[in-house]
Design a protein around this nucleic acid. Sequence first.
DNA 1: ACACTATTTATAAAGATTATAAAATAAGAA
DNA 2: TTCTTATTTTATAATCTTTATAAATAGTGT
Lengths: 145, 145
Amino acid sequence: MAHIELKEALETLKDTGVRITPQRHAILEYLINSMSHPTADDIYKALEGKFPNMSVATVYNNLRVFREVGLVKELTYGDASSRFDFVTTHHYHVICEQCGKIVDFHYPGLDEVEHLASHVTGFKISHHRMEIYGTCPDCASKEAH
Amino acid sequence: MAHIELKEALETLKDTGVRITPQRHAILEYLINSMSHPTADDIYKALEGKFPNMSVATVYNNLRVFREVGLVKELTYGDASSRFDFVTTHHYHVICEQCGKIVDFHYPGLDEVEHLASHVTGFKISHHRMEIYGTCPDCASKEAH
DNA sequence: ACACTATTTATAAAGATTATAAAATAAGAA
DNA sequence: TTCTTATTTTATAATCTTTATAAATAGTGT
């Protein structure tokens, strides 16, 4: 349920001593409800109606705050701007190289890769990141004909 | 041997009909010899001595050309600018979150992940990307104090 | 060496993100 | 509730990376 996630997110903020402003509330809500993976600008534009005076800097600042608190993950792909993903359970992303669509893909964490990496390089591993690239069914069918 | 790789790279360019200019030669040479993973600006600065009049655009243009020909891979991590890696064999990267050091990590390709992703999402998968994050031994010992 | 075209240069423009300082405001205390 | 104070927002400008443009230059095959 989306509003449970929102409530939990707000509690996380409270616990961390981050003030809950209407802008933060709205950005979080948008991130949770959005099934896509919006850019900072997407969010800015989406909330323009509700907050005509909101600054882009506010969006960026708060996305950074949310990231630092662990509520949000920043995705940097090849394209120009970062995308932001509300953190729920562990999952990977499958990305269409034609249209840019991003689909969630659940898969058990690759623990063994981290272990081997730690062993080989001597690093203290904290996490990994993986994305899978290809062509989505829509784009594939367009191509086909 | 580094100069064999350079020779092969130059042949690849010739075969693809890409002209070999002194700037391209130097950029390739730098990429091959550099054990790090330089940004476009790193390369620009490194070649400043040899090519005082070279434009940043030249570096960017040629990195794009090299990428299109498959000689170079562009790495977009969280930080500001892309890093570039001369393509040799398939490997992943382990990245230090403290100092940004990047270490190569050889591991068999995760074919099964691609297969499952294809099955679950219906995408035609072309490739994947994975990075492992942590703390390098140097930074870990500094932390330890 | 010539001609043709790709490439380089210099510059400016675009786009994303961050810095700054003044004004507004959330949250806890009185 | 009202006050207080540190945090946050806003507005703006600056910064940084990357790309576009047009004129000058230089590779390559003949």
